[in-house]
């Protein structure tokens, strides 16, 4: 082993891969800041990554052509509701499975594990048919409600709670706290990591939701960002600068959140690999 060259070699490899990985992002950012006409023309050389003569025209255009703020708020609202309600609902269920003794516990937990492997895609058509029958199409509700209960989240909470020291709950019971009181006063404050993990995983999987909104929404007023950029992309005239500006604005909020809470994101994702 040539130890002297080992580290420089690793750096070189990382740098090479890093350039390949970052170039689409750099291209997007640079393209969003230059006049429309030059985006395609300059895509073939180094100028693709260099916005000479920076302009915010594209960003202004986006707001002039579509109601970007509306889409953003839609996305934030829908995801906020899914994550928030999901944390409550799934953690309560996870706790009931992990710590309470009740009739049907084993059977129902088996069911939760079973539905864990059914992907949305496998039920999209009948689900769509069902919500059409009750007239839920084109609402916020239809984009939120089906995704609150999540078998994988329940499972993650379950595995976390079962690993918590039981003495804390026993102490709380002797101190006179009931199950719900124990849950909210004792368990919740000591389970921040699993809540962060589930929040991030839910957010990551829902923020890009495309198939379901495509199926159930038709009006602009309730559509989320991922669908909006696809529509914007096919909206004539085709102006790449505007599209890239749209993209940058769309990814910016989550990118900021990601950079701020990076440690939690990485830990959360790494968690998916730890399964039974």
């Amino acid at each position: 082993m040539t130890h002297r060259l080992f580290v420089p070699m690793i750096y070189l490899c990382l740098l090479l891969f890093g350039l390949l990985f970052i170039s689409p992002i750099g291209f997007m950012l640079a393209g969003s800041l230059k006049p429309d006409a030059r985006v395609l023309v300059e895509a073939g050389d180094w100028r693709a990554f260099w916005p000479a003569g920076v302009t915010l025209d594209n960003y202004r255009d986006v707001f002039a052509r579509v109601d970007f703020a509306r889409y953003l708020l839609n996305s934030l609202f829908i995801n906020g509701m899914i994550v928030g309600a999901g944390l409550l609902v799934n953690s309560l269920a996870g706790y009931a499975f992990a710590r309470l003794l009740w009739r049907g516990r084993e059977l129902l937990f088996g069911l939760v594990l079973a539905v864990m492997i059914i992907p949305l895609e496998a039920i999209a058509v009948p689900l769509f048919y069902m919500v059409s029958l009750v007239g839920w199409r084109d609402t916020y509700l239809v984009q939120i409600l089906p995704f609150i209960a999540n078998a994988f989240s329940v499972y993650l909470f379950y595995t976390y709670f079962i690993g918590l020291p039981r003495e804390l709950e026993e102490a709380a019971r002797i101190d006179g706290a009931g199950v719900l009181r124990t849950y909210f006063s004792i368990i919740l404050p000591n389970a921040k990591p699993v809540f962060a993990t589930v929040a991030i995983l839910t957010f990551l999987s829902q923020w890009g939701a495309f198939l379901w909104p495509l199926m159930v929404t038709s009006s602009e007023t309730v559509r989320p960002l991922p669908l909006a950029i696809a529509t914007f992309h096919s909206l004539p005239p085709l102006q790449w600068g505007d599209i890239l500006a749209f993209g940058v604005m769309m990814v910016l909020p989550i990118l900021v959140v990601f950079l701020l809470f990076q440690r939690w994101f990485v830990r959360g994702v790494a968690h998916t690999g730890i399964k039974g």
Binding site: F21, I22, I25, G208, F210, L225, L227, L255, F258, F265
Partner: peptide, 12 residues
């Protein structure tokens, strides 16, 4: 850097 694309929505 390598993880960054993961937070990008697929449609984008």
């Amino acid at each position: 850097l390598f993880f960054m694309p993961v937070v990008f929505p697929l449609s984008l």
